[in-house]
Simulated scan of single mutants.
Amino acid sequence: MGASLVLGIIALVLGLVLRYWINRRKFYRRSSTGAEGFSSYEKSVAIKFIERVGKWIAYALIIFGVLFLWSYSRQKKASQNTEIQKP
């Protein structure tokens, strides 16, 4: 098992879990009318900013995870091709 495979899986899972957790918090914060409920304006601004940054981090983790998995598959194909070509 290569390091890029492990890093790819970890980054992909962390990114997906982070997106799920942020979206779930946002869903449960909504009232029956669809409006988000905050106790103060400052809390609203801070939480929305943190969630926005968290989503960007989650997207970056997902992209890095996919790139690590892609590089692992390329390395595996290259090693299989070199094994086949050896007499």
Score class of each variant (00 low, 15 high):
residue 1 M to L: 07
residue 5 L to K: 13
residue 5 L to R: 11
residue 7 L to T: 02
residue 7 L to K: 00
residue 9 I to K: 08
residue 9 I to V: 14
residue 10 I to S: 05
residue 10 I to H: 00
residue 11 A to C: 02
residue 13 V to W: 08
residue 14 L to W: 03
residue 15 G to F: 05
residue 16 L to M: 14
residue 16 L to D: 06
residue 16 L to E: 07
residue 17 V to P: 04
residue 17 V to W: 02
residue 18 L to E: 03
residue 19 R to M: 11
residue 19 R to I: 07
residue 22 I to R: 08
residue 22 I to K: 04
residue 22 I to E: 01
residue 23 N to F: 10
residue 25 R to T: 08
residue 25 R to C: 03
residue 27 F to S: 13
residue 27 F to E: 13
residue 28 Y to E: 13
residue 28 Y to A: 07
residue 28 Y to H: 12
residue 28 Y to T: 12
residue 31 S to I: 01
residue 33 T to C: 09
residue 34 G to T: 08
residue 36 E to A: 10
residue 37 G to W: 10
residue 38 F to A: 00
residue 38 F to P: 04
residue 39 S to L: 09
residue 39 S to G: 06
residue 40 S to R: 13
residue 40 S to Q: 08
residue 41 Y to I: 13
residue 42 E to A: 12
residue 46 A to R: 08
residue 47 I to H: 00
residue 48 K to H: 07
residue 48 K to I: 02
residue 50 I to Q: 03
residue 50 I to L: 03
residue 52 R to H: 08
residue 52 R to W: 04
residue 52 R to A: 09
residue 53 V to P: 04
residue 54 G to Y: 01
residue 55 K to W: 05
residue 58 A to M: 06
residue 59 Y to V: 15
residue 59 Y to L: 09
residue 59 Y to N: 15
residue 63 I to M: 02
residue 65 G to S: 01
residue 66 V to I: 15
residue 67 L to V: 02
residue 67 L to N: 02
residue 68 F to V: 03
residue 68 F to D: 06
residue 69 L to W: 07
residue 69 L to Y: 05
residue 69 L to H: 09
residue 71 S to V: 06
residue 71 S to T: 07
residue 72 Y to D: 15
residue 75 Q to V: 07
residue 75 Q to R: 12
residue 78 A to Q: 12
residue 79 S to T: 02
residue 79 S to D: 08
residue 79 S to C: 07
residue 82 T to W: 14
residue 83 E to A: 13
residue 83 E to F: 10
residue 84 I to M: 14
residue 84 I to F: 15
residue 84 I to Q: 15
residue 84 I to V: 14
residue 84 I to R: 15
residue 85 Q to K: 15
residue 85 Q to M: 15
residue 87 P to I: 12
